[in-house]
Design a protein around this nucleic acid. Sequence first.
DNA 1: CTACGTTACGAAAACCTTTTAGGTTATTTC
DNA 2: GAAATAACCTAAAAGGTTTTCGTAACGTAG
Lengths: 349, 349
Amino acid sequence: MTTRRATITDVAALAGVSVATASKALNGRDDVRATTRQLVLDAAAQLSFQPNLLAQGLLSGQTRTVGLLTSDMVGRFGIPVLLGAENAFGAGEMAVLLCDARGDAIREQHYLRTLLSRRVDGLIVVGESTNPRPSITKDVPVPVVYAYAPSADPADVSFVPDDGGGARLAVRHLIATGRTRIAHITGPTTYKAAADRAEGVQETLEEAGLAQAGETFYGAWSQRWGRLAADMLLLNDPGIDAVFCGNDQIAAGFIEAARERGRRVPDDIAVVGYDNWEVLSEETRPTLTTIDPDLERLGHTAAQHLFAAIDGKATPGVHSMPTRLVIRDSTAPGIPDTPWQVSRGGSPP
Amino acid sequence: MTTRRATITDVAALAGVSVATASKALNGRDDVRATTRQLVLDAAAQLSFQPNLLAQGLLSGQTRTVGLLTSDMVGRFGIPVLLGAENAFGAGEMAVLLCDARGDAIREQHYLRTLLSRRVDGLIVVGESTNPRPSITKDVPVPVVYAYAPSADPADVSFVPDDGGGARLAVRHLIATGRTRIAHITGPTTYKAAADRAEGVQETLEEAGLAQAGETFYGAWSQRWGRLAADMLLLNDPGIDAVFCGNDQIAAGFIEAARERGRRVPDDIAVVGYDNWEVLSEETRPTLTTIDPDLERLGHTAAQHLFAAIDGKATPGVHSMPTRLVIRDSTAPGIPDTPWQVSRGGSPP
DNA sequence: CTACGTTACGAAAACCTTTTAGGTTATTTC
DNA sequence: GAAATAACCTAAAAGGTTTTCGTAACGTAG
């Protein structure tokens, strides 16, 4: 356990060759005789030799390591992005240095310095909301990719979920199922995601020649607000037959309150959520049709583009990542597969 | 952006001293004149010099990096542990290499190799359930600490939540509030956590001279099972006045079903959950009294012990980490602060 | 037998930093 | 005025790997 680890010098000595030859044999270079190579390989196996990546990195200037700088890992949205990214990196030979700045700019600076000290090959910055965040690209001698929260500098490489598109998907689905009086309840106005989705709702309704039922109801991202909004909405505007909620919590609250007020979901009112947070969307009654922002894929794509950027092939700009409509019972009770169906019951196992 | 990074040689040249002197000046060694030191420091600042940690690590044999090997980051429990650990490391000068083996032993081996290749100073292995997992300690020349899932080898260092203690906390609380007919609904028998909690329930009831209401109801960790079990239980055994649920999802389902059957919570039946998963425990009606396993602290402690182990001060054995009772309205409606109260409304902001 | 090309291998430099062992001044002590 | 000390600084080695270049052996053609 505390035995010194074998170096290539040890391997070379055991094989009876020079370190240069050992290196070539181990790395598959071709000016080494087959028998010699086997000798070296056997020696390496016997000593369970593993090349010191520090030494390799020192020499090559490439550490095969990227820094993953997250602003708030506590939040729900950073995790899937991070997961997708880690996934993409792990598939190659890259390793991920994880740093959680916890929303603190000072801490972020600190982590940034240590990451650069460790000579990471690139950085991926994942934010906690889709609101733009300050760019760090110019302070840094390696490529940077922003995920979820875009950089404020449009010349940087950012990947964000297509909130407008998600809203369009939701509203089109409601229209396709025959709804015409559609309301929208969402989170705080300070969230760009809320504004983007509201805009998507507006546009889609106009395209269909429909008017939105009531103005957009901005509130909190909570179940409580969903219930409250339901009470207000059902009282003031009893004719609505569908509601698109800004997230699954609001939708869960809405469904609960609607049921208590004697409205049947989906028969009287169809409900669509957002986020596909399965602990909610699969446990409401009826289960919840919702928009899946596919954050894991977003993280994966961001990581792949970081690869590309490290290889000098950057793709600047803010890239909108498509979302998926997940149809469950809150809009389409027991209807078997239908043409307009995108996917049912969440992601495959 | 692509400009070569400054080395200590550049700094020394700019300051007009040798690299040795520059190194001493930068590292606060004391055989260097104050004026010379300032000269070096200015030069370093001007070039925004940052020491190459690879070179340092190569020399010292310490990389100030630990590997964080998680078996399944998708799950809910790994994340807080990971978070607490990252937190503890970030406070020092350690960095965390994140690897998600996704429950695959092959992948775990692969990651293990690359981590060792990178010469990490230690490893923390976080599992996804409290069931023991295979030990890797003997395959590895650095200290290893297990978090959440203990190592199957009792000589290793493991940190697990005290499930039995959590159950005791819950049942004592129910008894303290005057309940006497207490039932227990929990997850699958295959989970050690479920078994440990059930055992804790048994013991605590016996100590109090009470009998458990019905046997332990094993099922799934789902809201659905909570509803189903509620229906069964309230039908067969209408006299029960409290139920301790194996997790918050079961508890949420139970509360919902109980309400529909006309039982008031907590007046007729008190409910305690487990996990303090706030998206549920703060959104049920009434809000849910529950056990918080304090996983973040568990992760933090595990990380600190890894530090100690790296310094040669290991503390072998399986360490049970205490849980917290979080009292909300499902057991104590609107009662103001009372002596037996441990904490209210979850962790402070 | 000489000239030359090919093949297989080794010596040494390079990457960047820290540390050890000396070396050069200036200052003190007798 | 010589010797001892202190203060400051430098040269060189070490850490593990890859790469470049040099060299030796061998075979082939002239």
